[in-house]
Every structure is written in structure tokens, then in C-alpha cells.
Design a protein around this nucleic acid. Structure first.
Lengths: 334, 334
DNA sequence: CTGTTAGCGCCTTCAA
DNA sequence: TTGAAGGCGCTAACAG
């Protein structure tokens, strides 16, 4: 049988003082007589007293926890962001409360609601929810920062500069003489996928205006990279470069190309996005985003707002970096 | 200015009933008149009322949250386990509260304490803490299940069958005619590392009794795999197989071997442990453990105990699977 | 079926 | 400096 944990009252009795004094002593208030404090600490020690965080939050209206809503921990992408958040949150003395949220807007809203009264603030990653759905899923009374999500105006947010990242890839390939580029896109509805697609299209329009670029649909998974190459086979298009919307699909593309005996990068260059660990190993040219840092910054901004004052409602753009490796020509890079 | 969220009292007033009725209605108790329930629901709806989970837990002495204490989200290993936990916890209607814990025993205890009153149970992953330190870091009044940790008797636990996994690797290599095997070990103090080291030693003692196997110290990171090969160069030992304590080090070993022009697996076979995504891509022979499943099972066991009754205090062993790929001879496998 | 009343464990005025 | 008392928001007896 587990014995009931000591409460502040037990400590008060043991130290022969009031609960108020125990509270003050435990929380390091100044107006406590040294002797009293000592007695309290001794009593707490001997009883193995640990303050009840739940009761404390209720009383203070502060939980020192921040909720994280995300689609799925699968893959490097989100776990890397969460890692950064975790680091920062630990440094700040807060906790992270995780909550999965599937694509459905109603389920998302429910996930958010289930956190009311548990957290002081929210970090939401909902790449597949539209701005409207997001907006009425978010509670009005809890500060929230959006990460990699569709967001209307007036919301604190962080986002990767997808367009610039893809544009850098395109510029790199075009600079190396490639012009007939095709894009393997991510799932429609996903904000990153859409920005990357748009980024590709406008970069092409700018850099290779006389060419009509091809876009093949994918879903961010490796198989769709393989499938994309198969699809291309059936099309009457020649191409000398493939810009995939993420690394996993780029890997699929590479496998397919290798199986067909296509030389990379001589015949066809390939680029990805994310710079997952595999990319480095396989020498994939890709776009890197400082994911962990973005997570840390999101937490920092939220906690600052929680402790300081207001949360400025604006979107912060996270710059990316083109990492040129062996799946693209080592030409005179930008 | 954010307006204060509605409380149960606001709903009661709006619906012209008592708070008790609101509580009963919201929680689906049977003894509530349909009309009353309808009025309550309508009022809650119009006020946008969402129950305050914190207050609820205090009153029920149940938070429906489980705390997860782990070293670091870095790498596939833990994030994969957490992914499994997250899946299960969502299905069960619980939440996951994350907490980092560094190697230091005192900090670990502190991390655990900070969760008191926030969670109903604990899942602790502390591969680098010894049984004693672990034992007095864990609170007496909260059920806990240990995952991949040193554990004394009488503790609910899950652990990967490290010894059997390594033994399978050794048997595989020996079966292919390799006898002069060296082990690149993980950091001492780490439970997985130690079990793998011991597993290697005893498998060798059993299968190649007339040979004195070499063990090189490593730290689970890739660089130490590279360093291990360098160390071997300086030693007067011939070897035809390297059994690394994890995949990252095995990758380091592979790089070093490649740089030296050593043929793999013809001259030297290499095996790892964990089966991270990279392993598949690089064709590394390795030992796979169902990490996500282990995480899910840990949650399931804990929640069952929380809802049902007692937590049986015993260690569950998770079986591993040898995955033979191209860094080891495709001999007549076991 | 419904309202009243105590808490859950802690913090914080308000007096002394 | 200290103690008494009220309240954070909700649930669970206990009466009606």
C-alpha cells in the first residue's frame, strides 16, 4: 500500500507553524524568520514533502507548462523541432505537454481544448490545417505561437522560408546549366508543400521564363519519389534536374534513377529539402532549416510573453541554407 | 485584453441551475433530466465553456497525464520510443508530460519531483543511472515503469534483450567463419552499452572459446566508431569482424574502413545495433528492436495499472531481431 | 433529479 | 514576522 504523500499541512503540523508560513518558507519569501524557515525546511525534509504542482497551478493560475500540438512525431522533422523546444523549456523551468493532432480540424480543436487548465501557452504545428480551421481551434484566452502552419494575420508565428530555400536550389541548378527541371511536390493542403511548390514555380518563371516546368504530385514519402520517376517515364518530357519537396522523396527519386541506370548528377541532378541525417550520408544536395533552433525560439518567445507581457503578433521567418553535395553539379555555386 | 474564460459557475448561472448539475451534465452522469442537460449544454456552448483540467485533476486526484523522464530526444532511439508512447497515450485519452533528465542523479530526482501533482504515473528512461540512484529518485507514491534502465528487483520495467541481440550478431558472424571479432562498446555506466558488452563477451566465450576478443571503448557516437578503427590500427591484432554496440558507431567504423580501403564484408564484417533508418540505406547488418512498440506497451501497462489496480513489479524483456544486410557475409545464416 | 456544502492542496490578502 | 480565512475551478457526498 502506498502511503499518502505529505501535504503542506503535514509540514505545518510537524514544524508547529501555520501553513502560510510553510508556504512562505518554501517559496523563499523574505519575511520569514530564519528559525521558522529552518524548522520548516527540516520538517519538509523529514517528511519527504514535495509541493503539489497541480494545486499550486490552480492557486497561482500558472502551470509552468506549455502545450505542444503536432501531427505526429514520425520522422526527423518534428522530433528535431521538439528537441529544440525541450532544451529551451528545461532551461526556463517549464514543462512540455504533448498532444497529437490529426488532420481533422475538429479533432485538432479537441486536442487544444483538452489542454485548457493544464498549460499557460500553446505551440501549434499544424501544417495541414487551413488558417480558418486553425483560427477557431485556438482558444482566445491562451497565448499561442504557430510553427510551420497556415496563419492569418495577427498571430505569433515561425515559419521556414520555404520559397527562398527552393529558389536557392533552382538557382543552383540553373547556374550549373540545368533548365529542364521538374518538381516533385508534397501533399496539397500542407503549407510547407505548397510554399515549396510555389517557390519552385516562381523561381522557374524568373530564371527560366521560356520553359514550362513540370510538377509531379507526391506525398512527402519515399515511395512517392519512386513513383514520380515512373510517372515521368510515361511523359514525353526530357529533364535534367529534379527538385523534390523534401529529402525522403528525393531519396526515392535517387533509388529510381539508380535502378534505371541514370547518371546522377551528370544526366539528372537531384535536390531535396530538410537535410535529414540520411541526406548527408547519401550526399544529397538539399536545403537545411535550423529546426531545433526554431523550436527553441518558439518556446523562448512564448515564455517571454508569459512572464513579460504581450506576445507580438507577427510571423518570424527562419532562413534556410543550401547544402550542396554530390547529387548536383559542383558548378560555380551561388 | 483577453477576456477571462467561462467557469462552471458562469454556465450554471446561464443555465439557471446549480454547478453540481452542470458538472453532472458535462460528465455524462445518468441522473440528469434531459431538459436540464440540454439547457446546460446550450449554455456551455454559448459561453464557449471548456472545463479547467487543472481544477478537475485536483478535485479528482487524477490528472490523466503521465510523465516521461528521458535523457535527450536526440537521435532516433528515444524519439522512436516516445512516438510509440504518444500513439498509445492518445488512444487512451491521456497526455504525455516530457521532462529531460541529465546523467546526474540529483538532477534526475529533481526532474521527477517537479512532476508531483501533475501526473498519475511515470515512465522513466535512465540508461545511465544506476539502480540505487534510480531507486531513490523515484517517488514512493506514484506508479512508475522503467524503460531501458538499470532496475533492482520489484520494479515494473521493459528492456531490450541486448545480450540476445548481440549474441545473434556474433553467432551470425561466427557461422560465416569469422572468429577474430572485436567489439566497439558504448559508454560505461549506460545499461544498454554494458549489456551489449557483456553479451558480446559471453557469446564469444561460448562460440569461440579459444580466442581472446578485443573490446574498444566508444561512446555511441559516430566519431568513436572512426576512432575505434584508428585505435585498432595501433594494436597488434588481426580482426575479421567488428560488432559495434550501436548503429552510429558502426557507421563510423564503415567510414574508417572505407577510407583505409578495407573490403567490407570480405575482409572485415561489420554489425550495428538499433536499426536506425540510415542502417537500411547503407546496408548495415544490425539488430532491430521494436522501439515504438516498447513505448506503447509501457504506456499500456502503466495506464492499465492506473485504471485497473496494481502494477505488477516485473521486468518484461523485448525480443530483438537480427537484420542481415550487406556489411556481413550472406552465409548460411542461423 | 437537483441544490448545498465540503473539500482537493496551495497561495495570498488582511489583521494581529 | 505570523496566523486565520477565503478562494483557484471542479467533483462528490448528502440532503431534499
Amino acid at each position: 500500500m502506498r502511503q499518502a504523500p505529505a501535504t503542506i499541512r503535514d509540514v505545518a503540523r510537524e514544524a508547529a507553524v501555520s501553513v502560510a508560513s510553510v508556504s512562505r518558507a518554501m517559496n523563499g519569501h523574505s519575511s520569514v524568520h530564519p528559525d521558522t524557515r529552518a524548522r520548516v525546511m527540516a520538517a519538509a525534509q523529514s517528511l519527504g514533502y514535495v509541493p503539489h504542482a497541480g494545486a499550486r497551478s490552480l492557486s497561482l493560475s500558472r502551470s509552468h507548462a506549455i502545450g505542444v500540438v503536432l501531427p505526429d512525431l514520425h520522422g526527423e522533422f518534428f522530433s528535431e523541432i521538439v528537441r529544440g523546444m525541450d532544451r529551451e523549456v528545461t532551461a526556463r523551468g517549464y514543462h512540455l505537454l504533448l498532444s497529437n493532432m490529426h488532420a481533422d480540424a475538429e479533432l485538432a480543436a479537441q486536442a487544444v481544448r483538452s489542454m485548457r487548465g493544464r498549460v499557460d501557452g500553446l505551440i501549434v504545428m499544424a501544417p495541414q490545417l487551413d488558417a480558418a480551421g486553425l483560427d477557431d481551434a485556438l482558444p482566445r484566452d491562451v497565448p499561442a505561437v504557430l510553427v510551420n502552419s497556415h496563419h492569418g494575420e495577427g498571430r505569433a508565428a515561425f515559419r521556414i522560408d520555404n520559397a527562398a530555400g527552393i529558389a536557392a536550389s533552382v538557382a543552383h541548378l540553373v547556374g550549373a546549366g540545368r533548365r529542364r527541371l521538374v518538381h516533385v511536390a508534397g501533399p496539397s493542403g500542407n503549407i510547407d508543400a505548397e510554399e515549396r511548390r510555389q517557390g519552385f514555380l516562381s523561381a522557374m518563371a524568373r530564371l527560366v521564363p521560356d520553359y514550362e516546368p513540370v510538377v509531379i504530385e507526391g506525398d512527402f514519402h519515399e515511395e512517392s519519389g519512386l513513383a514520380a520517376v515512373a510517372t515521368l517515364e510515361g511523359l514525353p518530357v526530357a529533364y535534367d534536374g529534379i527538385v523534390a519537396a523534401n529529402d525522403m522523396m528525393a531519396l526515392g527519386v535517387l533509388s529510381a534513377l539508380r535502378m534505371q541506370g541514370v547518371a546522377v548528377p551528370d544526366a539528372v541532378a537531384v535536390t531535396g529539402f530538410d537535410d535529414i541525417p540520411l541526406a548527408r550520408y547519401l550526399g544529397l544536395t538539399t536545403v537545411r532549416a535550423p529546426l531545433a533552433e526554431m523550436g527553441a525560439r518558439a518556446v523562448a518567445r512564448l515564455v517571454d510573453a508569459l512572464e513579460g507581457g504581450a506576445l507580438d503578433r507577427e510571423a518570424r521567418i527562419i532562413a534556410t541554407e543550401l547544402v550542396i553535395r554530390s547529387t548536383s553539379p559542383a558548378a560555380g555555386q551561388a
